[in-house]
Write a protein that binds this DNA or RNA. Structure first.
Lengths: 341, 341
DNA sequence: CAAATCACCCAAAGCGCTTTGGTTTTTCAA
DNA sequence: TTGAAAAACCAAAGCGCTTTGGGTGATTTG
């Protein structure tokens, strides 16, 4: 069923049908009802492809998921972020277009999206420090919102980020307050903006208390469970093991917990752990007694909001950038306690 | 830059440009080179929307991600599956269209996809027993591949599944061989096909050894970490705790491990655990010494292959269904040992 | 009561491609 | 040298919508 046959069936012009369905005022209420009823009856829906060509809008938002070709890892927060964003898109009648690409093909993917017109905007995932994608997208004139942000010029584009620096500063302070002096940091890849900021927050807190950051206690890698396990294991077997560990990801913290258990130590007594928690749906940190003390922020809400910001900036068409910095929640759980003497 | 202006620049017809770029034979090699060079120079790429209207193909595959509105949970395997599928799509020049929808809106979503023509086919995620989506898609004439399958008529459509029954039967046998007599099952939602089959495998193994399945030892719920923790905790505090636990998801197994640790017991000695392992990229079960004894199958490979099957069936256009049943790998890890006496 | 306005509807022109059905050149065997 | 076949190109017709720019009666307005 297409417009033409439907219009013939109803004895109306295609124009009128189109207007009736799109709620234009130039059509009488009676006709509109008749048209809508017929559309329902014949299960007619405008062909998306034709609609998009005619309107010049793709009605789709692109998400480019970069994949480091060495690790081939998909960020576990991705599913929840997408779920949040998906909600916003559904509401607005937009589609979500996903491209999983190798790091090196990312630029080409954006260029292609822009010149082929397959999307009206994109969400940028996992920004690095001074991320070149930002300038690229600005040149291409493709609307975008960054989940996170990128050190450098932060005022010229839209982003939504959590306050990573402050968040880890507070977490470090909490551990210092508990008397911990040797605090390890298991951070994400520090070429990424969020990880760099978290390290700054951690180091700032230490310095303010007169501790010099100890480079033998900080680690930076992709945040897998195994990274947490192996690093913590090595640390705990060392000569002067830390009494507290600050971790950038819940998954990695699980690995840390495993190592602590294996070493016959008790989490929260022998070793304290604070982790960041993205509030993933399948990995809730307990609403009653959180099993980890954590800095929490819902990545799903972030997804929802990023999408909203992008859709709105597309709708209004003004290039006015929107920035949102969310504070995290510092939740006390069972994984922290006073430093052992 | 569009076809028209490019053709004017080159003094050729739009037809010739189009054919040159699409490698049709009706164009001289010299011209083809000239056209391709010009396209590169002016950064011309055919407009996707126009191309799709003209060809009548969407060049996109839909993934409908159902979300149970009570739990609002995104399946953690989703990211890896998508990554795998994405690879296949990229290779073939297809886009991936994601819709995150509430369970109840799923039928409407499929209907809309079919009548709007926004995709050429879909992947069905998380099939239930006698899943109504299968009949729906067949009626709609929308090509599809099911990740998993649905009890009932299994020969009339394409699917790719792992041998869940056999897999859990083997896992149960392993535990029985180790002398375990009280084996608990922490299963996924048993209205889902995979979970139902796993239970059957588990029960079959028990019965074959003369044990009657004990309904106080089996649990079925969404596979979160918390489900694992709380259920295991309760079990271990009970009068006659199981000596072994069979778990349907790695994430849930992590919760089980946490409960075992909390109870002051040792995994693999006091309590044995076998879990299914989807081989998620951020949660590798160790290539050297797996921390869990597990039935493993890569969900990423499954994604890759599902996409291939779908693309191929779209390309050939024959309705010949393809079915693949993958065996899982039973990996011995540290989490199992002889039943304590 | 004529003129202006309004409410409704329509024909046709795009949107930017692909593809059909030619036409014009070249090539090559007879 | 000629005629047929092959090679290379082109004009124009879709694809299925939206939107522009009218029309045509009915209703107000001065």
């Amino acid at each position: 069923m297409n417009l033409k046959t439907l219009s013939e069936k109803l004895g109306l012009s295609q124009t009128t049908i189109s207007r009736a369905l799109n709620d234009y005022p130039e059509v009488s209420e009676a006709t509109r009802q008749r048209v809508k009823a017929a559309a329902l009856k014949y299960n007619y829906r405008p062909n998306t492809r034709a609609q998009r060509l005619a309107t010049g809008r793709a009605m789709a938002i692109g998400h480019v998921i970069p994949m480091s070709n060495n690790q081939e890892m998909v960020n576990p927060i991705f599913g929840d972020f997408i779920a949040g964003a998906g909600e916003s898109y559904s509401k607005a009648g937009y589609d979500m277009l996903l491209s999983v690409v190798q790091d090196k093909d990312e630029e080409a993917t954006y260029r292609a999206m822009a010149s082929k017109g397959s999307v009206d905007g994109v969400i940028v995932h996992g920004p690095h420090k001074n991320d070149p994608r930002i300038k690229l997208l600005q040149e291409l004139g493709l609307p975008f919102v960054v989940h996170g942000r990128s050190m450098g010029d932060e005022t010229s584009y839209s982003w939504l980020d959590i306050n990573n620096g402050r968040s880890f500063q507070r977490a470090t302070n909490l551990l210092l307050d508990l008397g911990h002096k040797r605090i390890a940091l298991l951070n994400g890849d520090e070429t990424m903006d969020f990880a760099a900021r978290r390290r700054s927050g951690y180091e700032d807190a230490l310095r303010k208390r007169g501790f010099a950051p100890d480079s033998t206690l900080t680690f930076s890698a992709e945040m897998t469970e195994q990274f947490g396990y192996e690093t913590a294991k090595r640390l705990l077997q060392g000569m002067r093991p830390p009494t507290a560990i600050l971790v950038s990801s819940y998954i990695t913290a699980i690995g840390v917990r495993r190592a602590i258990g294996r070493a016959g130590l008790m989490l929260g007594r022998d070793v304290s752990v604070v982790t960041h928690d993205d509030d993933l749906s399948y990995l809730r940190n307990g609403d009653d007694i959180p099993s980890f003390t954590a800095t929490r922020s819902s990545v799903r809400n972030a997804g929802r909001r990023c999408a909203e910001i992008l859709l709105q900036s597309i709708a209004t068409g003004n290039g006015q950038p929107v920035q949102e910095l969310w504070e995290t929640e510092l939740m006390l759980g069972d994984s922290t306690g006073p430093a052992p003497s």
